[in-house]
Design a protein around this nucleic acid. Structure first.
Lengths: 229, 229
DNA sequence: TAGATTGTTAATCGATTAACAATC
DNA sequence: TAGATTGTTAATCGATTAACAATC
């Protein structure tokens, strides 16, 4: 057999699809919460903010979880997507850098509810150590290794200033973390096999600014004119 | 002439390129700060974390700002990219929802340094009104309209809980905001002509979890095994 | 059976990449 | 001129979309 069978092990899901699965998961949860038991691809697509062709194509990479002529069972599809993403299990997470942003992240309720558990908050600033944030004590950054080993941490969050980010990433990689979510405005270099995703506020704003600039003319809120509508 | 001329007005820059321009801008600023006056596409690509073919292709959409055999003048290219993005001008921004995250955003220094100015912090919770965050007083959400009109605000940031996000977006659109950065875990529906970008922590974590799950086997930090390496 | 809706096909569109002619 | 590096071409790859056969 040279042809790939479509069993769990060999299925490859396109990256663009992977990025949308959590959106579908959230939409299904919202539907379930409002008491809806069954939905069509059109319903779910609307709730998720995509078109139904894309939704069906995306779901087709996971398997055949709908019923023609009927639609999808909300709970069943939700479970299948959660399983595919891996959020049926619990993921211990460490957050490094407990400034304003780290503080906000530690308090973020969406963590627990989506299968992530903050097992430690770390900072290099000794004046923060021992302080309790969201019920978790801030520990010295040097404690990274024993914490990662003890809890089996695979995912690390960097919320430090830019200048510290590469060092933190290097240490994370050294102690065996293989997925990093980086909030610091810095390009991280990591070895193959380590995934980095970045979230960058100012980049998002700049992308908006680019498009905004091109709208001017019809815009009533353009910075230049007094806006005396 | 049916062929598009490559003058400023008609140039169309692919979305993927637009999203990378801010990264190049930041890399150029870092190079300039370390005293480097000239760089090759290879140098800049490394600093930005992309390959040099992609960088040159991206820059080619802006114009011809390099010198063959020599490279790019760091300051000149930086100015050209900043102008293209629109961050040579000042963008007034309002933040709605001053919880933990709104607080962190208000204090974010990358705002000012990249051409964005927080002109108001708004919240529906009357107990927050008047409180000063990052030197700016929190005002009632109802003040949105006069503030937007007075400052010519085109960009709004939503940092409210999910249930409030659509209402806030509707109000923003109604008063003339045409670009929204949404941190609430909710799908926003807005009219054509309004740009929405979303930043979603739990989605990013779930994408990492998906890939992490597929690494297990070789992983030393897998949650299941004791990790007695 | 008739109506509804999935899962898949195939066409189209956009992004990436390597290679190299142009040119400093 | 010789060496270096850009800007562009063209091939490849991946994502989106509309349409519809399969099938409940």
């Amino acid at each position: 057999m040279t042809t790939r069978s479509s069993t769990d092990a060999t299925r490859v899901i396109p990256e663009a699809t992977v990025a949308r699965l959590p959106v579908y998961l959230r939409a299904l949860t919202a539907l379930a919460d409002s008491g809806i038991r069954t939905c069509s691809s059109e319903d779910l697509a609307t709730a998720a903010g995509v078109n139904s062709a894309k939704l069906r194509k995306d779901l087709s990479y996971l398997g055949s979880y709908g019923t023609r002529g009927v639609g999808y069972d909300v709970d069943y599809l939700r479970y299948q997507i959660a399983r595919e993403i891996g959020v049926t299990q619990d993921w211990p997470v460490v957050i490094v850098g407990i400034g304003n942003l780290g503080h906000a992240l530690a308090n973020f309720s969406g963590f627990r509810s989506r299968g992530f558990r903050v097992v430690a908050l770390l900072d290099a600033d000794s004046t923060l150590i021992g302080q309790s944030v969201a019920g978790v004590a801030v520990q010295p950054f040097d404690e990274l290794e024993p914490i990662v080993r003890e809890h089996g941490v695979a995912i690390g969050v960097i919320a430090t200033p830019a200048f510290a980010a590469q060092d933190v990433a290097d240490r994370m990689v050294a102690v065996g973390i293989t997925s990093i979510l980086n909030f610091a405005p810095a390009v991280l270099s990591v070895p193959d096999g380590v995934d980095v995703r970045k979230v960058d506020l100012s980049i998002e704003l700049q992308i908006l600014a680019y498009h905004e600039q091109r709208k001017a003319g019809g815009a009533s809120n353009a910075p230049a004119d007094g806006g005396a509508a």
